[in-house]
Write a protein that binds this DNA or RNA. Structure first.
Lengths: 332, 332
DNA sequence: ATGAAAGCGCTAACAG
DNA sequence: CTGTTAGCGCTTTCAT
């Protein structure tokens, strides 16, 4: 059997309380016993059970994270950023992929409650506001990451999608493009914001965006390929396209080249996210960066604060995305 | 406060033992009380604490997974596959990115012990065999995923890297290539196997592989780009290259194109892994597939078995990788 | 069919 | 400075 605190206490000739104190460095104990106890713990290769510690009313030092799909490179990077913050603060993460399925979301949240997580981060767009209400009701600290929902009042860390879309639009215009369009990500609120900002930029420059030319797709290899073909077969092909995710942008570049177009010679493309896709694309994809690690750090800080029960006002942190220039947009 | 089993018992007018029994569906209780108790649990929105349950000697239903880096798309896919199996079996995962750092590995393993995980999956090449010994000593069920180490006797699920390398080599030869080389992944045992198999295939066809032409790099965007340039500047550029990871393969394709070469017209490339990189490459990257989800399923099954203490012999499952043809290799 | 009671391994007063 | 003791929320005999 694994050694317990009793085994250590007995072998060290002290009480379990003393052992507990040296483990947690609480109370005052003589250097001598500290040393003795530590020695015994080494000998026994003793690891205090955090399960038992958690039961005693303390925390589990565990955080639940909901993402749509951890195998999506964007969320894989997000998860990694959270993991870094968590490790630094002594927490471990339960990563949960929901595939945007409401049932799965509820299933996982219930599971996280059972596992007594100290806090929850939701990094997936919610179809169902009930989820948040449920969490709030259970009084588990919660922060939303990159998710916006007007009806919700919790801590939120997002990027300004409208601003991001605007930056993309303004950039294309600045480069002299007059005939532009956008490929949006289907069913995503974030995409709506990007579209809105993009439109704003065009309007300011007196450029119109015909609704028929707006192409919508899921951010998957297959569907963005399909959509790219669709876009390329448009009667008046634009000179520049804003793709609402890097994956869509890369697909478009690939399809265009397959059809003999040169990028950015014949078609300029700007993406969104600045994931590894943008980096490995050829030519490199100019894109709007979501500063993932900065956002994750900020999210975790918020969570840490709420977990400390410092009743601070609900904060809504909005980060301004930035343009990352590579080589996929040409100056006309 | 969160309701406990006592709250439920009191409100339902029964003992906690009875409540426990209806929760776990153990023992025999009348339909009537079952119904009553369930109703109360609903009303109270009661979630049994798995922390407390775990303390009672039961399991935590938690598995620790060590990977080098969850933000690496290959391991993100692996993690997702594990998550699927885990969810189906009622387990949650602690995902741990070690960045191949021995200290981090030990740190995480100790943490997992403290958290009382029911089992551990190691999906990262070990520098330090002590780690495995430590886990075995603590008597925590363990399965190695895609990691081979002769000095270790635990359950292992891997692919046959030698075979994979051989398939890649044989394929290039079959396509008529005589002048070929390989880009290996630095510091990885898996890559050594692939190289070995590749060499075998060449030898059988009486083709020699000059050691100078073997290029080695880390599987990162930057380093594989650097290595690709190096390869392309080789005095006698080969007609075909076997890249030991898809990322390296994609980088090579990109660099080659940048230098005005056409793929596969001027240079054929075959990769390894069949990750999303291969799919989004243009032209699509022909590659050797690691059937991730199949491997993950098998790994999890092994783990489940060892956790059940069914003292079954240590198994070593080796999966044969398969060729996935796309468009990056030309027939000469 | 149901309940009383003894822990699981640890923390946190409270005594000494 | 160190030890005693009472739980934390749940499972599990063992009675009833």
């Amino acid at each position: 059997m694994k050694p317990t605190i009793y085994d250590v206490a007995k072998k060290a000739g002290v009480s379990i309380a003393t052992v507990s104190k040296v483990i947690n460095q609480t109370g005052r104990i003589s250097e001598k016993t500290i040393k003795k106890v530590n020695e015994v713990m080494m000998e026994l290769d003793y690891q205090p059970s955090s399960v038992a510690a958690a039961l005693t009313g303390k925390k589990t030092y565990t955080i639940g994270v909901l993402v749509p799909d951890i195998s999506n490179p964007f969320f894989a990077e997000v998860a990694r950023a959270f993991e870094n913050s968590a490790r630094a603060a002594g927490y471990t993460l339960f990563l949960c992929s929901t595939d945007h399925q409401t049932a799965r979301e509820h299933e996982y949240i219930d599971l996280l409650f059972k596992k007594q997580v100290d806090g929850i981060i939701i990094a997936t767009e919610l179809n169902d506001t009930k989820l948040v209400k449920k969490i709030v009701k259970h009084d588990v600290p919660l922060v939303l990451f990159s998710v916006d929902h007007p009806s919700i009042s919790t801590h939120v860390v997002t990027i300004d999608n409208v601003r991001g879309g605007y930056i993309a639009g303004a950039y294309l215009i600045e480069k002299g493009h007059q005939s532009v369009t956008i490929m949006t990500e289907k069913d995503r609120k974030s995409s709506e914001g990007r579209l809105e900002g993009f439109k704003q930029a065009l309007t300011e420059a007196n450029i119109s965006l015909e609704n028929q030319s707006i192409i919508s797709c899921y951010s998957t290899v297959e569907d963005s390929r399909r959509a790219s073909k669709q876009l390329l077969s448009l009667p008046n092909r634009p000179t520049a396209v804003f793709a609402c995710t890097d994956l869509i942008g890369v697909s478009l570049i690939n399809e265009a080249r397959k059809q003999g177009l040169s990028i950015p010679g014949d078609l300029s493309v700007i993406g969104f996210d600045n994931t590894i896709y943008a980096d490995i694309a050829e030519p490199g994809l100019t894109t709007i960066e979501q500063p993932i690690s900065q956002m994750a750090t900020s999210t975790f800080e918020q969570l840490l604060k709420s977990m400390k029960k410092e009743e601070h006002a609900k904060q809504r942190v909005t980060i301004i995305p930035e343009l990352v220039e590579r080589a996929s947009v040409k100056k006309l």
